[in-house]
């Protein structure tokens, strides 16, 4: 059967030591059973490796940073669309999602470019600072947390928490504290870097397990693959991981997608305790960098997302292979300065 030609723009080409998901998503799309994609990379930095990976990415354009706002992004997408006639965009960065969600309707109606994203409400609800309320609302166990705005509030938390506990920044950073003094130390260090508030979180003993999943927006889970990281880089990123057979974890995933009517891809991060309890740590509203493991396990989520974005019906994946591993590797490409010059001065390559 001849595959249908299609043009898909993908972000997250930063396949570096702490990689964005773009390259994995593109590999998955290239294995689509139905489509023959032309891949347009959308990059922020001139050194994102994907820009130079011509066997995976057909052409790359620079786009404005999320901080430039929705209008600048729309303007740039219009320019790119004039040349490329985009059918679908798959954004892969947390920081850019807000703007793309805001543009979803306009892109679809004005330019006929489709996406398959969570709603703004879904996106906001699972933010780190809202996660505790999220857990309450959807009856998911979330480590107890409290936000602090000043050091003087530290004594107030001792009734609710036992040591050790986790001191977290608004966006990044998490440190374990074993005493009141340590909370204060971490508070000061983290708040200097990431500002206030500081989040105090219950420390849950156990091992981290993750799920990559995809919802169709009606509450149905189209696919879900659980994974445990086997080897972690000093940046806390998975270097290798293995797919799991864990019905309880899958049930929690299905329940969350059902309750939130999640639309699009998501990564759920859990701590599994020794008595088999699962605590939700984070929801990332996009594919994880390890999404290609799902493809290796028989569930091509990016392909399914692509079909849903174009309004096609997809069946749910009923199973995945367990015990499949991914092992990441790094690779030095040789790049001509001419290529760097092009992307730097013309904004495209």
């Amino acid at each position: 059967m001849k595959k249908t030609d299609i043009t898909i723009a993908v972000t997250g080409l930063n396949a570096i030591d702490s990689p964005g998901p773009g390259i994995s998503v593109i590999r998955a799309l290239r294995e689509s059973s139905y489509y023959n994609p032309r891949i347009i990379g959308l990059s922020y930095d001139t050194m994102e490796p994907g820009i130079y990976m011509h066997d995976l990415v057909d052409k790359t354009y620079q786009i404005p940073f999320p901080s430039a706002g929705v209008d600048n992004l729309l303007h740039r997408i219009r320019e790119i669309n004039k040349k490329e006639k985009l059918d679908v965009i798959i954004p892969n960065f947390d920081a850019e999602l807000f703007n793309f969600i805001k543009l979803e309707q306009r892109l679809s109606e004005d330019l006929n470019i489709k996406m398959f994203l969570p709603s703004l409400n879904q996106f906001e609800e699972r933010q780190k600072s809202n996660l505790f309320a999220f857990g309450k609302k959807y009856k998911v166990k979330v480590p107890k947390n409290k936000t602090l705005f000043s050091l003087s509030e530290i004594p107030l938390i001792e009734n609710d928490f036992t040591f050790p506990l986790v001191v977290k920044g608004k966006y990044y950073d998490a440190k374990i504290a074993y005493s009141r003094e340590q909370i204060a130390q971490h508070f000061e260090k983290i708040s200097v870097r990431w500002g206030l508030p500081i989040i105090i979180q219950e420390y849950i003993f156990g091992s981290e397990v993750n799920v990559t999943a995809i919802g169709d927006g009606t509450g149905r889970t189209v696919g879900a693959v659980p994974m445990r990281k086997q080897y972690i880089t000093d940046k806390g990123k998975a270097w290798s991981g293995i797919s799991l057979d864990d019905d309880k974890l899958l049930k929690i995933t299905h329940d969350i997608i059902k309750a939130t009517k999640w639309k699009g891809s998501l990564e759920l991060e859990f701590i599994k305790t020794s008595n088999e309890e699962y605590y939700l740590l984070e929801i990332n509203p996009r594919f994880p960098a390890w999404i290609y493991l799902a493809v290796g396990c028989g569930q091509n989520h990016p392909d399914a997302l692509l079909k849903m974005a174009l309004g096609r019906k997809v069946k749910s994946f009923s199973k995945h292979e367990t015990g499949k591993m991914f092992i990441r590797y790094s690779y030095d490409m040789i790049v001509n300065l001419k290529e760097f010059e092009k992307i730097s001065t013309l904004g495209e390559l």
Partner: peptide, 8 residues
């Protein structure tokens, strides 16, 4: 220096 104003 190239025509695009790129200097190395």
């Amino acid at each position: 220096i190239s025509d695009s104003g790129f200097i190395f």
